[in-house]
Simulated assay, not measured.
Amino acid sequence: MKLTLEPTDRFQRIDGAYCRIWTEATDTGVPVHAYIRCVSPQTHDAEANALFDRELRSLPVPRCEAVTYDLRFLVD
Rank of each mutant, 00 (worst) to 15 (best):
H33M: 10
A34Y: 03
L71Q: 11
I14W: 07
A25S: 14
D53H: 09
T68L: 04
R57M: 10
V39I: 12
P7H: 04
S58Y: 00
V67N: 05
P7F: 02
P31K: 03
W22T: 01
H44L: 12
H33L: 06
E24S: 14
R54C: 04
E24N: 13
V67F: 02
A34N: 03
Y69A: 08
L3R: 06
M1D: 14
V32D: 03
W22A: 04
H44F: 09
D53Q: 13
R63W: 03
E6D: 11
V75M: 10
R72N: 12
R57C: 06
L74M: 12
R72A: 13
Y18H: 10
G16A: 12
N49Y: 04
I14Y: 07
D27M: 08
D53G: 13
V30E: 14
D27S: 10
F11M: 15
V30W: 00
R13W: 04
K2D: 14
T26S: 15
H33R: 13
Q12P: 00
S58V: 03
C19Q: 11
D70F: 07
L56P: 00
M1H: 13
M1R: 12
R63P: 02
L56G: 00
Y18P: 01
A34H: 03
I36P: 01
Y69C: 04
P62Y: 02
W22Q: 04
C38W: 07
R37Q: 15
E65K: 07
Y35L: 07
E47K: 14
T4M: 08
A17H: 15
L3P: 01
L51C: 09
E47N: 11
L5T: 08
C64K: 11
P60Y: 00
A48I: 06
D27P: 00
E65H: 10
L74V: 12
A48F: 05
R13S: 13
P7Y: 01
C38I: 02
Y18G: 06
A25K: 11
L51Q: 12
A17T: 12
R37F: 04
R54F: 00
F73S: 12
D53A: 15
T26H: 03
F52K: 05
P31Q: 07
L3H: 09
I36W: 08
A50P: 01
R20Q: 13
R20K: 10
H33V: 02
R72C: 10
I14Q: 05
A48H: 08
P60G: 05
D70M: 06
A50D: 14
P7N: 08
D45Q: 10
D76I: 04
L59K: 05
V61F: 03
V30H: 02
P31A: 06
D15R: 10
S58W: 00
R10H: 05
I36C: 02
W22K: 02
G29E: 08
A48Y: 04
K2A: 15
D70I: 02
L3K: 05
V61K: 12
G29Q: 06
R13E: 15
P62S: 10
A34K: 01
D15N: 14
A46Y: 09
R20P: 04
V67E: 07
L5D: 07
V39F: 09
C64R: 09
Y69D: 04
A46C: 06
A48E: 13
